[in-house]
Design a protein around this nucleic acid. Structure first.
Lengths: 219, 219
DNA sequence: TTTATTTTTTAGATTTGCCTAAATTATATT
DNA sequence: AATATAATTTAGGCAAATCTAAAAAATAAA
């Protein structure tokens, strides 16, 4: 089955809202999509007719299994394109969203799978969100920026924000790499540097720039 | 100004038809777009109102200067994406058209220019058609496959159909490269091989596979 | 040049996705 | 529990892009 851009935008928005909220309401969705509640009701009927939605009048709604599957394929496309834009086209993290919103609606399975292969099957997009694989599976945990990790919580480094040799040199020097497990001990507001602790090693200070280039998964 | 997908498809189709025909007619365009003449008339009015079209009822039509500019930016996007799909994602030549038809409607200037840079400013798409640059200029001549070059016509090699090391090795061995000027002297129908002549060198035989991997521009 | 044919346009519907305003149902308050 | 408020749905319309059928204009043929 094929879906219109409007339908896909609704499916994706419902998916994101139900991740956070459980059941989704008409007004919530209208706010998310910057449209009116009446328009949402119209689309809900359409999606229900297509069996993508579990929905009864006045009761709130969630995606059906089939709806969720489609949502995941849209999310996959969105995040793969974001990764492409940042890694290959040198977009900044902050600039990719709107363009990816357009690219995500191109549904050619072949395109998406070849893009995935070309990018070497990335597991997280540039914002740290996991990318579903071609059968809809994805890493459970969102990757977060080291700077956002709460104090004294163990986390594992899963990605670095750039491939510059300068960054890699610095990481090698500090003995930090993918897989390193650490905790943040302190935040210094003066320069936004942080102090971290790796088991069996003395505490280390990381600059704001460095901390922002590191992504971790809580354990 | 921003255009709908339907408008862009009309603009592009008119551009291609007027390249071939001079003036374009309603029925021609309807056939090209697989729609009905009445639908075409409706859209012609819209495009005329937007000053993209020189059009008087019952008279046929052509793009205005402004319309042509927009057509070129759509053609640019289409051909850059085709190049991307073949060179980076390993699509076959024949498989890229439909996907590029979708990608071409994403109009972000920044996206297109960064893609162009990433691809290293290609001059021709995988079908040999020239790619307009960011200001709409493009090579005048269509690039053609060496196998399609008429006998005894001088032509210059401008592109090779793949980057495989095997191909490059063979070309180096035969002393053929980008810029080489040659003529085709003979076609052998048995194996579709061809005999070529490079000035100051003895005649050479190229296999069908090799000839098909070489693109030339007539001089 | 008058008629027949073809091309093009107009008129009037349809579908999708959106809107406002009014009605209905659910929830919160007293 | 009755009423006020908030959320949701229905009713009725609008714009874009398409369609069919009919009318108008241009072109070709007799």
């Amino acid at each position: 089955m094929n879906f219109s851009i409007a339908e896909e935008n609704y499916i994706k928005a419902i998916y994101h809202l139900q991740q956070a909220d459980g059941n989704v309401t008409t007004n919530e969705l209208a706010a998310e999509l910057k449209t009116r509640a009446a328009s949402v009701t119209d689309m809900l009927k359409k999606l229900k007719a297509k069996k993508l939605l579990n929905y009864e009048k006045y009761q709130g709604f969630r995606l059906s299994a089939e709806g969720r599957k489609i949502a995941l394929s849209i999310v996959r496309r969105h995040r793969l394109w974001e990764y492409f834009l940042v890694e290959k086209l040198q977009f900044g993290w902050d600039e990719v969203h709107e363009v990816a919103e357009e690219l995500e609606h191109i549904s050619s399975r072949k395109l998406v799978d070849k893009l995935d292969a070309y990018l070497d099957y990335p597991k997280f997009d540039p914002h740290g969100d996991p990318i579903p694989d071609s059968s809809g599976r994805m890493a459970a945990q969102k990757m977060i920026n080291l700077i956002d990790l709460p104090l004294n919580e163990a986390a594992e480094i899963v990605s670095v924000g750039s491939q510059s040799t300068e960054l890699l040199e610095l990481l090698r020097h500090k003995n930090i790499g993918i897989g390193t497990v650490l905790e943040v001990k302190k935040h210094f507001s003066f320069d936004h540097s942080i102090e971290i602790k790796i088991k069996g090693h003395p505490a280390l200070t990381l600059s704001q720039q460095l901390a922002q280039a590191l992504f971790v998964k809580r354990m």
